[in-house]
Amino acid sequence: MDLGTIIWNTIALFLTVCIFSFLYKDNPFYKFAEHLVVGVSAGYFAIILFYNGFVPKVWIPVTTRGEWWYLLPAILGVMTWTRFSKKWAWISRFSIAFYMGIAVGVALPLEMQQRVVKQLHATMLPVHFMDIQGFWNLLIILGVLCGLVYFFFSVEHKGAVGGAARLGIWILMIGFGAGFGLTVMGRISLLADRIQFMREWYLMVTQALWGA
């Protein structure tokens, strides 16, 4: 085990403990770690975007392959910088609008496809009483219908609509409870990972110091 590895791992351990210290209360160690993670990650993203965005997608195509049209998005990008000037800030809207247009255009059919039509198809289930699944199918269909009724906005939730909406919110709450219960174990395993890291650090250091 070389000294460099021990030092780096000790730094990692120190930072881990700094973050965990939050569980006691807000303190200088946590504040230090918090500002460090924000600063490091902001710098990290700046560099990643430079090397994975600008260099391969603008610099190399334009300078080595002569694909000048890659300058167009660069110009759109530079246009966002007009935000620095009060007078010219409106120019940045062109870039934002272009970005929004692409995003909305991609999202529109995808939302319809994945979240409406596919879900509808999956919910059109046969209802029968030959086996228990046929009955469960009925419950799924009724659950989806009542859940959808809850999302009616232009109708008052009274009478039959109110009853269905109430049943709908119960179904949603059962779903939330299930989601919550399911996540608990996953979150605890994350903690186990960090504890494992601390244990490994302890073993590494004791081995380096005493060879045990």
Binding site: Q113, V116, L120, H121, T123, M124, L125, P126, V127, I141
Partner: peptide, 27 residues
């Protein structure tokens, strides 16, 4: 409201063994 109608109709037709309607929603 239309989706609720389609869903209910789709389920009824599936129950009756008519699958042509449901296939329209296959992607």
């Amino acid at each position: 409201a239309i989706i609720i109608g389609i869903l209910a109709l789709g389920a009824i037709l599936e129950t009756l063994g008519i699958t042509q309607f449901t296939r329209w929603f296959f992607i």
